[in-house]
Simulated assay, not measured.
Amino acid sequence: PVMAQLVMDAGATFVLAPDFNPQVVSMVHEKQKLMIPAVATPSEILQACRMGVDLLKLFPANGLGVNYLKELQGPLNNLSIIPVGGVTLNNVADFAQAGAFAVGVGSELINKTLVAEQAWQQLTELAQTFITRFHENKKPDDVCYPL
């Protein structure tokens, strides 16, 4: 809760959490900010939904796997889920096809070598490749918001 308060005090319009903490969800919602908690189990997902959470971070996505997301989409297909953790250029299309609302990309995008070389154009192109690959693989009936 302290860290969430600090980021909101600094001007954040949303909180992306490393776990599902009902106390943090309540506090962020009281401030009328977007809360995106990390979830891994159907129980956590449903508890978050009961608390009014509209966007969920599935973590660790690669560890749980694309098939796990597909299986969640069966009974819980009305949810907006963002796989995070281990999303790469090799699996971003699979997550899109499995029904991901979006994906969170970390170390695969922030290439240490490119950052050290200040190769900003290459990093921009890499980010664009992720975006393109994700959008190209969304199902036709999925809503897809351009960046």
Rank of each mutant, 00 (worst) to 15 (best):
N67D: 14
V15W: 03
I82Y: 00
M3H: 04
K138S: 05
V103W: 03
T129Q: 15
H29Y: 06
D9C: 08
T13V: 11
V66C: 09
M3G: 04
V105E: 05
G74C: 15
A40G: 12
E44P: 07
L126M: 13
V2H: 14
K70V: 04
L58A: 08
L79P: 01
L56F: 07
E71R: 12
M8Y: 12
A38I: 00
R133H: 07
F95L: 11
N90R: 14
P60V: 08
A12V: 06
Q32C: 12
A61F: 05
P22W: 09
S26V: 03
V39L: 02
N111H: 07
L147P: 10
N62Q: 09
F20I: 02
N90F: 10
L6K: 13
F134H: 05
E108Y: 15
V39E: 01
N62M: 14
V92F: 09
P75A: 15
K31N: 10
V53H: 00
V53P: 00
L72H: 05
N90W: 11
E71I: 08
L58R: 01
T132M: 15
N62F: 14
L64A: 11
T41N: 06
T88M: 05
K138T: 11
K138A: 08
V25P: 01
F101Y: 13
I45S: 00
K112G: 06
P146I: 02
Y145G: 09
M8N: 03
N62E: 14
H135R: 15
A96D: 01
E125D: 13
V105W: 05
E136S: 10
N111K: 09
Q32H: 09
V143F: 12
L89F: 08
T113Y: 05
Y68N: 06
D19I: 02
G99A: 11
M51R: 10
K70N: 15
E44W: 02
T124P: 00
L123V: 11
T129L: 12
F134M: 09
T132W: 11
V84F: 00
F130Y: 15
P18G: 10
T113M: 03
D141W: 15
L34E: 04
Q73C: 10
M8R: 04
M35L: 14
N111S: 13
